[in-house]
Every structure is written in C-alpha cells, then in structure tokens.
C-alpha cells in the first residue's frame, strides 16, 4: 500500500512513514473487512458520515482496502490498481481464518452454548 518515498536513499526505509504504518496497524484486519462486506453485500456504500479529519471529508471510501480518498477521481483511479484488484479477489474467496476454525482443526467440536433462554 502506498508507493515509494521519493526522497529516501536508504533502501530499508524506502516507504514514507505514513504508508509504512498503514500496511501494518492502521488497516482493518482481513476478517473485519470480510464481515463488513458481508453486511453491505459487495461494497454498495450508503451515505458516509462527514468527518473533517479524514481525506475528502470521509466521503470517498474503499471498503476492500479500508482507505479514504480525497475525491471521486482518485478513488476510481485506485479501483484500477493491482493492489485493489488483488484485495477484491481475496475477499471474494473463502472466509478468513478464525478462532473457531483453529478450534475445529485442533479436534474440538462445535461450542456448546446450552439451551436458548430467550426466543427472539
């Protein structure tokens, strides 16, 4: 995510501070994005809330990559990138690994939550 930093000569630190951080911690996890996509059914976004701190008042958002853009043109340009397409492909695939998957793989049964007390 994010390109090279134009004025950096040391190869190890070639990403700018912002893009280096973005790949590591600021992004949503795969499973969180997957759940969000499931909820909205493929990224048809409703009206986003106005936020002064985000680029473009938080109006131009890519659900798959969890990124905000300053305007429509930039966002549409982002949709054409390889990174975005790769991400979409991953999200179209099987659901990400969860703790339940880990438990099942370890030879445990499905969790037992007991009888339902309240019927909704």
């Amino acid at each position: 995510m994010g390109g090279k930093c134009p004025h950096r000569k040391v190869k190890k630190r070639r990403l700018s501070h912002k893009s280096a951080r973005r790949t590591k911690f600021e992004l949503k996890g795969d499973d969180a994005v997957y759940d969000e996509l499931k909820k909205t059914d493929g990224g048809a976004s409703k009206s986003l809330p106005l936020d002064e701190d985000l680029p473009g008042m938080g109006q131009f958002y890519c659900l798959h990559c969890d990124r905000y853009f300053s305007n429509v043109a930039v966002r549409d340009e982002h949709f054409k990138t390889k990174k975005h397409k790769k991400r979409v492909k991953i999200m179209m695939g099987p659901a990400p690994h969860t703790q339940l998957d880990a438990d099942l793989a370890a030879g445990m049964g499905m969790p037992d939550n007991g009888p339902k007390l309240m019927s909704m």
């Binding site: 438990d103 793989a105 445990m108 049964g109 499905m110 969790p111 037992d112 939550n113 007991g114």
Partner: peptide, 21 residues
C-alpha cells in the same frame, strides 16, 4: 486438516468442546 493430512471427521472429536455454560 484442509489438505487431508490428518483425520478430519471422527466421532471422538465431539467430546472436547468449548462449553459456555
């Protein structure tokens, strides 16, 4: 599990489970 290296479906797996009560 996914690639068929280990035993997957077995009745003995039903005993160990997370019990939330």
């Amino acid at each position: 599990r996914l690639h068929g290296k280990d035993m997957t479906q077995d009745s003995t797996f039903e005993f160990e489970r997370k019990r939330n009560r």
